[in-house]
Amino acid sequence: MTEQRHAVDRSSRVSVYVLRLGILLAVWWIVSGSHSDWWFGLPLAMVAAALSLWLAPPARFLLRPHQIPQFAGFFLWQSLLAGWDVARRTLSPSLPLQPEILRLPMALPPGAPTWWLMLTITLLPGTLSVRLSRQRVLEVHCLDARLDVAGSVRETEAHLARLFGVQLLPTEDGRRQ
């Protein structure tokens, strides 16, 4: 599981199928409760796993399971701060907002890591993914330009790089971690 890259050959397709089937069966068990109807759930999971291979081919990137708790902790804490921050701004009579759209070059490799970054920062304090250009520059809408938005996006990038076990690419503005 800790290998980082997955050559898309036949054997890896089989292992990805088995992995996805396992996840879907677990989901079926969770959703259908204590009296699971496996005669229905098993074929459904098999078809769904096959369909997922067609719609979302095996990725080159795999999560590193031992990094998940640390990322989950970071994410939960930041979610708490994000909700609190937006509640504070909403309830304050003067509505303290200084929104701006920033353009940040992406340092994570294209594909799953970049997608995770875009989804994650939308749930983090004061940032919202708006658009990703082909030159791999992400437009981020921030609630308050006075905060260190670029810094928190960089921090999230570093967390995701550890989660996926990838190197951050040098970006055009020369920053690296």
């Binding site: 979610s79 708490l80 994000a82 909700g83 609190w84 921050d85 937006v86 509640a87 701004r89 909403t90 309830l91 509505l95 907002l97 929104p99 939308t122 749930l123 304090p125 004061g126 919202l128 708006v130 809408h141 609630l143």
Partner: peptide, 23 residues
């Protein structure tokens, strides 16, 4: 409340995604 008070579509998305995630 954020949807009602915030001034444009971008800031309203901020209010909804973050507050509802935590809620």
């Amino acid at each position: 409340l954020g949807i009602l008070r915030f001034p444009d579509v971008y800031t309203r998305v901020h209010a909804l995604t973050k507050a509802d995630n935590l809620g």
